[in-house]
Structures are given as structure tokens and as C-alpha cells.
Write a protein that binds this DNA or RNA. Sequence first.
DNA 1: TAATGTATTGCAACTCTGTTGCAAAATAAA
DNA 2: TTTATTTTGCAACAGAGTTGCAATACATTA
Lengths: 138, 138
Amino acid sequence: MKNEVAEILKRNQLSVTDSRQKILELFRLSNSALAHADIEKKTSEQFDRVTIYRTLQTFVEKGIVHTIPTTDNSVLYALCKDNCSQGRHHDNHVHFICDNCGTTYCLEHITIPNVEVPGNFVTKRTDVVVSGLCDKCS
Amino acid sequence: MKNEVAEILKRNQLSVTDSRQKILELFRLSNSALAHADIEKKTSEQFDRVTIYRTLQTFVEKGIVHTIPTTDNSVLYALCKDNCSQGRHHDNHVHFICDNCGTTYCLEHITIPNVEVPGNFVTKRTDVVVSGLCDKCS
DNA sequence: TAATGTATTGCAACTCTGTTGCAAAATAAA
DNA sequence: TTTATTTTGCAACAGAGTTGCAATACATTA
Ligand SMILES: [Mn+2]
Ligand SMILES: [Mn+2]
Ligand SMILES: [Zn+2]
Ligand SMILES: [Zn+2]
């Protein structure tokens, strides 16, 4: 729904532009996380590389998407569900990266366990990334 | 101890070269994880960039160091303790990245919790990365 | 709806990171 | 010491990410 996408942008005080609409739509249609390269492949005819970088950055800042750490010099992005906002992500779920097909899933229903850290360390964020074989590859 | 470093290399069926000795020593002297860039800064007068890339790759393959996922298009490396070997890492600990000073610690004594995944997913590896403020920055 | 100010985009140029092939050098084996 | 094997450095390249700036698109107000 183009309209719903525009709503999300407005709610986040972003002007509604073609690139933001299209890229946000891509995330909504995908059931897995996307890398910059994925988005570039699907939209490079339409948008400049730089625009994609800036759009992703903006989405992260606004709490529209969240990042997923990886071990291969890439960053993955996925939609934040509920009520994330500027600087406050509430995506408290585990991520799964398939070693075989590379697909990365937000396991929305599996919550991050509480992890103890030494006395004077302060936890701001905890990422849990599981890798292995996804349901399609196992 | 240069000698001990050489022992580790031999034990892993690697020929003992200047760059491997020096880089491995760097890891042993550091109490935090190192990125490629860190090693380059400390040794670029001595070794070519390419050699550092290849050395790190070799160390990971042999189980001498392990990687730590990040959210910023970089990969961190840290020494494996005990008995990791080719393809079999037993580093089952949590990592902590300080948002302020950037230092990344292996929390050797905090073990990775068991994380449930959906039925047909197969877990091969679980990474837990906590970020926030380290003891020096809090 | 049209005019205006503001925010976003595309482009060009650049830097930084990582990779590859190959000849020279270093290491290990005999 | 000689020889075979492995590793290194260099050069060249490819790809990823950044920045400044002018052109364009968007939001606002009249
Ligand atoms: Mn997610
Ligand atoms: Mn570690
Ligand atoms: Zn898969
Ligand atoms: Zn710190």
C-alpha cells in the first residue's frame, strides 16, 4: 500500500519522496533483511547509489529500520515493527543468518535473553545473531 | 614471548614468518579485539596491507583468532583461547563493544546462552554482542 | 493553484577497503 | 647446502562508501 508507506514517512516527519516510498515498500514486501547491495540491485535504474545510502541512514536514525551485525563487512537492514522511534529501538528479537542461502530473518517471536556483564559495564543494546541453516536449506 | 608465538604457529602447521609472528604477538599483547585497520596502523611500515589481510584470513581458518560481528562494515578479530582448531571454534563467550571508546572486549567468563530457534532452523553458531559503555567509560 | 522557501536528489570526484596475479624472497624439507 | 614449497610485496584493479554542490522535488503559505 503506497498510502500506508506515505503515512509512515509522515509520522516520522520525513518528506514523502519517490525513493523513500519505494525503498520502504521493498522492506515491507520482503520477509528477510536487505543489504545496501540488494536495494541497489532492485532500484539502481531508478535511484542513485548515494540516495540509497542516505535513505537507509535516515531510516535507521528515525527508527524505521534497524541494523543487524554481520561478520563479513556488510550491514543488513530490516523493518522495525511496532513502536521504534528516533534513538529508541524496541526490536528485541534474535536474528538468523543462513550460511547456505544468505537469507537473514528477524525471529520476531524469539526475544533477546538477559545477558549479565561485569560490574562497571553498562548495557545499551544486545544483539543476538544465530547462523546455520534456515528452514528452506536444512 | 616470540618463542611461544612460534610454537603456536607450528602447532597449526604454519610456517613461521615475520609477519605472522608479529601480528600474533599484537593479539597476545592486546586485551581487546583488533580490526584490520588497527593492525595496519601498528605494522604498515613493516608489512604490506595485503599480507595483513592474508594473515588474518589464515589465522581465522586455523582457529587462532575468531571474528566478532559489527554493525559498521568492519570485522573485529580476537585471539581464541583454549582449544580451537581448523573449523572448530569453541569460543563461547559474549563480546562487548564500547560505544564511547570503541574498545571491544571478549567477556571470556560470560557464556553464550542457549537460544531457541524455530523448528526447521539449524543452529551452527550463536553470536552475542552487547554494546554500551565499558568500565573505563561509564 | 501558484509562488516561495526548504529539503532531497543526482552527479562527479574522491577516498578507503579489499582482491587478484605474478615475480621475488623467505621458509621448510631433503 | 640445495631444492621445493610457501609466503610476501607490488601493481593493478574492483567495489564500497563519502562529500560538495547545483538542479530538482517537496511542503508551506498565500
Ligand atoms: Mn530484526
Ligand atoms: Mn572473543
Ligand atoms: Zn537458507
Ligand atoms: Zn569504553
